[in-house]
């Protein structure tokens, strides 16, 4: 009898709390951005500068090196996810939050970041600069 009662109470408690718990977790958003975006126009960037573009719901960093080459990285710092920026004076990628430094290939050089930034592929098509996620090899 006691077990029945206890079990019943437990089951009803479960049936109350389970929906609430699930409710608290937001639904997963499908990233509509896909794997490719137009990050900018040719001529928009001066050599040795960079800009942030939207890659789905996250920021990306597009840079034009002084060698005239475009490079793109994820702009989310691997330390605590601040948004990084290009520093023309250092020719490096800098995270202002805790002074993290990366090189142009996204490798973490100094400061707290534990991992490199994800690298993206850049193609110029007409006057559009197209950035795409690297496919896992």
């Amino acid at each position: 009898m006691g077990m029945l009662l206890g079990g019943g109470l437990f089951a009803s408690a479960l049936s109350f709390f389970y929906p609430v718990l699930r409710y608290l977790v937001p639904p997963r958003l499908t990233d509509m951005g896909g794997d490719t975006v137009v990050a900018g126009k040719v001529g928009e960037l001066r050599p040795n500068s960079g800009k942030i573009f939207r890659f789905g719901s996250r920021p990306g960093l597009l840079m034009l090196g002084s060698d005239g080459q475009y490079r793109a990285l994820s702009a989310t710092c691997t330390h605590l996810s601040c948004t990084v920026q290009y520093r023309g004076d250092l020719r490096q990628v800098w995270c202002a939050c805790h002074n993290g430094m990366y090189d142009l290939a996204g490798r973490n050089l100094s400061g707290p970041p534990p991992r490199p930034l994800e690298q993206y592929d850049v193609h110029v098509r007409g006057d559009e600069i197209i950035v795409s996620r690297r496919r896992e090899a």
């Binding site: 920021p59 948004t83 990084v84 202002a96 939050c97 002074n99």
Partner: peptide, 29 residues
């Protein structure tokens, strides 16, 4: 602006600062 680089001098309120500063000083690995 979620799509702007973080400005320099990001600090939490002072009562979190001691933790924040410690985390900043700990080496990455």
């Amino acid at each position: 602006d979620p799509f702007a680089p973080a400005p320099a001098g990001i600090k939490p309120e002072w009562y979190f600062l001691f933790m924040f500063q410690t985390l900043k000083l700990i080496p990455a690995k």
